[in-house]
């Protein structure tokens, strides 16, 4: 990913208050071109509200958000030309087939003539909906609807995509296909902000994540950066040829080692340190004469980071 100077999405001290609820509380972060940023948080954390503000469907109480340098409050029409928003619901029209649905939105985004026909063709190709062109949208499966929704989102070739729970309710195959589509879009240089409850998927497709809870942004960065920042421990296992007791004593005396368990010649423990620290630890073991025959470290997943960062509070 090449990081450009100007962020494609920028939330700047964003606030949104509904009566007594501070749904979004001073949230700031950026998304650059070609980057996929996962927006994660428990239900009611403020993800959808922030995304709706970005999509110019809601207004912030204070602060502002920018898409390609345009304020969502002051220049919503310019933002709309550059942004594709996929909400967490699918709006259906009665008596409309797949082609007509895409054709309507292409027309609504001002595409005319060959440009419109070509855009619909490309979108149907990308989302693999060509075979279903004449099918009424009410008869589509959930996965097909999600594809169509993604197709609608990108019909005007926006530079920014905001996807709210795009994988919700999809079967594993449809999820994998959707993930591939999102990766392709990012490769095409689009800035993508995506929210999901399926953290394993986000971890695979996102360059960075933003964690929000109770309207407050708790952390932004890659999973590794956040893990380092919040000192999330990795789980390390060491097996020695002999001298299990010596290994246990040696590890117990080291800083950063906790939750030490042993099983014969195998020791498993939590270690607070990055990969370089793990390498140093291994070197120190060997230098101290421990006959290490197996050394491995399992780093914390996005789920572990999420659980560590958030407290599961709702407002």
């Amino acid at each position: 990913m090449i990081r450009t100077a100007t962020p494609q999405i920028e939330l700047r001290n964003l606030h949104r208050v509904f009566d007594q609820t501070h749904a979004v509380n001073n949230v700031s972060f950026e998304v650059y071109a070609g980057e996929v940023v996962g927006y994660i948080g428990p239900n009611g954390a403020g993800k959808t509200t922030s995304m709706r503000i970005l999509a110019t469907l809601d207004e912030p109480t204070a602060g502002d958000a920018y898409v390609d340098g345009f304020s969502v409050v002051e220049d919503p029409d310019r933002v709309r030309r550059r942004l594709g928003f996929m909400p967490d619901y699918f709006g259906t029209y009665q008596n409309v087939n797949v082609y007509e649905y895409l054709d309507f939105f292409a027309r609504s985004y001002g595409l005319k003539g060959r440009e419109r026909i070509s855009a619909i063709g490309e979108v149907m190709e990308f989302t693999q909906l060509r075979a279903l062109a004449e099918k009424p949208i009410n008869g589509l499966s959930k996965g097909m609807k999600q594809r169509l929704c993604l197709g609608r989102t990108m019909i005007h070739n926006p530079s920014v995509l905001v996807l709210d729970e795009p994988a919700a309710g999809l079967d594993p195959r449809a999820r994998i296909e959707l993930r591939e589509m999102i990766s392709k879009l990012a490769d095409a240089g689009k800035a993508i902000l995506v929210s999901s409850h399926i953290l394993t998927e986000l971890a695979e497709m996102c360059d960075r994540v933003a964690i929000i809870e109770q309207g407050r942004l708790l952390a932004v960065g890659s999973v590794a950066e956040i893990s380092a920042g919040v000192q999330v421990q990795s789980t390390v296992h060491v097996r020695v040829l002999e001298g299990a007791e010596r290994l246990q004593n040696w590890l117990a005396a080291r800083d950063g080692v906790s939750e030490l368990r042993t099983d014969g010649t195998l020791a498993v423990f939590d270690y607070a340190g990055d990969r370089a620290a793990e390498a140093s630890l291994l070197r120190a073991m060997v230098e101290s004469g421990l006959p290490v025959i197996e050394f491995g470290a399992k780093h914390k997943s996005l789920e572990d980071v999420f659980l560590h960062v958030t407290e599961g509070r709702v407002q």
Partner: peptide, 14 residues
Amino acid sequence: EDNTYDLLSITSLR
């Protein structure tokens, strides 16, 4: 009611 108004209002249609 059908949640299409949001989709419509974020298009380039005035």
